[in-house]
């Protein structure tokens, strides 16, 4: 007669492993927040005690008023027209500083729009990146007046 022997199970029970793993996946998927981690680099001019003196006439002044109204060298202008206006000036002097001066009450996004537009000068056919300068109110008060 054959003796029936109770054979012990020689397998590692792994069926619940996947459950645990998927639980962890769900946790990571729920807690991961896809955030905006991209933006524009903003070159700060060196905080120099003796900054180079720029005559107002040597530069292009872009004033931004609340609502996004632009005044470039005293001429009202639309955002898309700035580069065309700058082209002949910058061809003569590619280092010509372009100063962005938003009004204190201007919404921040309008300043970013203008800055973004000027940064794309090379895509619009300029030979060199535009020398953009965004002076802060403190600098304007201490050096311009």
């Amino acid at each position: 007669m054959r003796i029936e022997r109770d054979r012990p199970d020689d397998e590692i029970p792994t069926s619940s492993m996947a459950d645990i793993a998927f639980l962890l996946i769900v946790f990571f998927m729920v807690t991961t927040t896809f955030t905006a981690t991209r933006g524009l680099d903003f070159a700060l001019p060196e905080d120099d005690d003796n900054p180079p003196v720029i005559e107002k006439e040597e530069s292009v002044l872009i004033e931004i008023f609340p609502g996004g109204n632009l005044v470039v060298d005293q001429n009202p202008m639309k955002l898309g027209e700035i580069i065309e206006y700058l082209k002949p000036k910058l061809e003569r002097n590619p280092k010509k500083p372009v100063i962005i001066r938003p009004d204190v009450a201007t919404e921040y996004r309008h300043m970013v729009e203008v800055y973004d537009e000027l940064r794309q000068g090379e895509e619009h056919g300029l030979s060199e990146p535009i020398n953009i300068s965004v002076p802060t109110q403190r600098e304007i008060q201490s050096f311009w007046y």
Binding site: T37, R38, G39, L40, Y108, R109, V112, E113, D116, Q120
Partner: peptide, 9 residues
């Protein structure tokens, strides 16, 4: 604000 140019931070 929205920009055309965006670089990785």
């Amino acid at each position: 604000p929205k920009t055309t140019l965006r670089y990785e931070i």
